[in-house]
């Protein structure tokens, strides 16, 4: 993978030309557009999973350290924040794949 390797550079060059040539053809081959229901479901699971994981970690740590319910509350909030972050990231990915002509 070093740049000094002439073969690797030629390969990368070929790759660049290939992807350029493919560019137009990719237009026709689009990813299946996810349904509205699927998109909504995906966002909900992203949010919920993070909340569950955050709350779960907090609950487990509380049991270990005997600090109930302090860590549960803190980690739950972190979970909510992480869930929001997941949702924003997923939504951005969805927008990008919609805007990009190649899909």
């Amino acid at each position: 993978m070093t740049d000094h390797d002439p073969d690797a550079r030629r390969l990368a060059d070929l790759q660049a030309r290939l992807s350029e040539a493919r560019g137009k053809r990719e237009l026709q081959r689009e990813a299946p557009s996810p349904s509205k229901l699927g998109a909504a479901f995906r966002l909900v699971t992203e949010l919920l999973a993070a909340v569950i994981v955050g709350g779960g970690i907090g609950w487990a740590l509380d049991r270990v350290f005997g600090t109930s319910p302090l860590l549960l509350i803190v980690m739950f909030m972190l979970g909510v924040a992480a869930g929001m972050r997941n949702v924003i990231r997923t939504a951005r990915e969805m927008n990008e794949s919609q805007d990009r002509p190649g899909g």
Binding site: T45, V53, L78
Partner: peptide
């Protein structure tokens, strides 16, 4: 960083729950 870690750990949950629940 804690938020990112929780977000990272939530991946297998969201991945599996989505398929299973559907």
């Amino acid at each position: 960083i804690p938020i990112e870690i929780v977000s990272f750990l939530s991946r297998p949950i969201s991945l599996s729950v989505r398929l299973f629940a559907n």
